[in-house]
Design a protein around this nucleic acid. Structure first.
Lengths: 251, 251
DNA sequence: ATGGTTCTGGTCGAAAAGACAAGAACTATT
DNA sequence: AATAGTTCTTGTCTTTTCGACCAGAACCAT
């Protein structure tokens, strides 16, 4: 049994055989926009348990690295992408039996990326797949372990982050139209926003987006060419809150 | 080394000797209001390392319990308090060397409680102390391990929760005045709010607080007796956002 | 030219935020 | 008892923001 003699936060007078041993892993949920819908990256498991099922990329934490470094390393190893700052830790999962063989506690990270092509480049493409998040959340796609719960939490967190910080610009390219940016909000929230009001709300926030002066080519259906913007400073936690305009009934 | 052959989220074909072993602990930051200021509960370490220093209560996770259960159990063991729903996980910490002896990954929880008397009752009072959070954050009080960082993150999280959910009512008693509730916001945010506007903002939010019809005894300085309220439904994550009124320049 | 589509800017009413004044209900002091 | 000081509550006013909707601008297709 554990020593609870002094009530301190960490074990006292322990030796390595006195506490239950756990494996610690990190899992990374990669979100990205594709075809106007929110997608995420999955990998297929090649061995038991859950052989053949889809899972979130991840792996063991090593003793000589931080959790954040482990997540960054695993992501780089499996996808070839280096995302130093965009990794956000959003939860730890340690239910007994979540891995049928050993005791595993996993720490989950969230990354929002814009370019899908460079993501799958570094890994075996046959084992990696970009799927709509909606298919995962609606259980049209079964995930290994408790990864469904992890994905749900990841999307919830992404919504909050989207509202509080400025990571929405991480979803789009280095230069983007406000319609693309609006699509990110609409896809993650499942709502429809007024284009005019969204524009004002975004532009009014000082330094959020910076106009480049250039314009896009209109789509095949025509339409007025949209102005191109680039991302301003991306706010960290604790920055001012950016509320996105709500939409109400319309007639 | 770890197998990264298939790029799946958890180890494949492993056996218990194939992955680095970690101890997993849970730490609980207990926040409460006392004398109009935000306080937190600390325990004193009786043995090395960090002997004699203050630390957050916590302890080992067991293999047959969830992280949440572990936090709840450790909190009950050390403080005699049972808080089934108010425990919020807010971070995992696993930097190498954060415990000088073994590899420890800790999962941190946040609890906001109202009644201090019942908290310290269940434990050895000599080892437990309620201190102002300000003293910890300003490093007037040294904490063991990386607990200072954990406390800082806890308060940051509490502020967000306060703004997004209705847990502010968890800080105050079962029945409270709006001035007490306002003090919670002012203490955690370090701002001053207009009493009249705060009242409206809180009462307008439907079901947030419920008037009891009774009144308080005025303080020694007199003053009009305040109406007593009790907490309405406490909103969970995903509920409507309650913005607290901002205060601007005054002259 | 004409109609359809998409982005941009303008306006207008409703709602909310914030400042401030005034009243209400108490205690303490003279 | 009258008065002053304190604290909570209510009222009102101005300013800002939100959300809806319309009209124009700039493109495509036929």
């Amino acid at each position: 049994m554990t020593t609870k003699s002094d009530g301190a936060g960490a074990p006292i007078g322990y030796d390595p055989s006195q506490f239950p041993a756990f494996a610690v892993t990190v899992d990374i949920v990669i979100l990205t926009m594709s075809d106007g819908a929110l997608h995420m990256l999955l990998v297929r498991r090649g061995e038991a348990p859950f052989k053949g099922m889809w899972a979130i990329p991840g792996g063991f934490k090593r003793p000589n690295e931080t959790l954040h470094e482990a997540a960054r390393r695993e992501l780089a190893e499996e996808t070839g992408v280096d995302v130093p700052t965009l990794l956000t830790q959003f939860g730890a999962y340690g239910d007994p039996g979540r891995d049928p063989r050993i005791n595993v506690v996993t720490v989950a990270y969230l990354a929002v990326l814009r370019d899908v092509g460079t993501i799958v480049a570094g890994t075996d493409a046959a084992d990696a797949l970009l799927v709509p998040v909606g298919d995962v959340r609606s259980e049209k796609l079964d995930l290994a372990f408790d990864h469904l719960q992890i994905v749900r939490d990841a999307v919830d967190r992404a919504r909050v982050e989207l509202e509080v910080t400025g990571i929405a610009t991480a979803f789009v390219g280095p230069t983007f139209t406000l319609a693309e940016l609006r699509a990110v909000y609409e896809a993650t929230w499942g709502v429809e926003l007024d284009a005019a009001n969204f524009r004002r709300s975004v532009v009014a926030e000082d330094g959020w987006v910076i106009p480049t002066g250039r314009r896009t080519q209109p789509g095949p259906a025509g339409g007025r060419p949209a102005e191109l913007y680039r991302a301003g400073r991306a706010w960290k936690h604790g920055g001012p809150i950016h509320r996105l305009p709500r939409t109400t009934e319309r007639n």
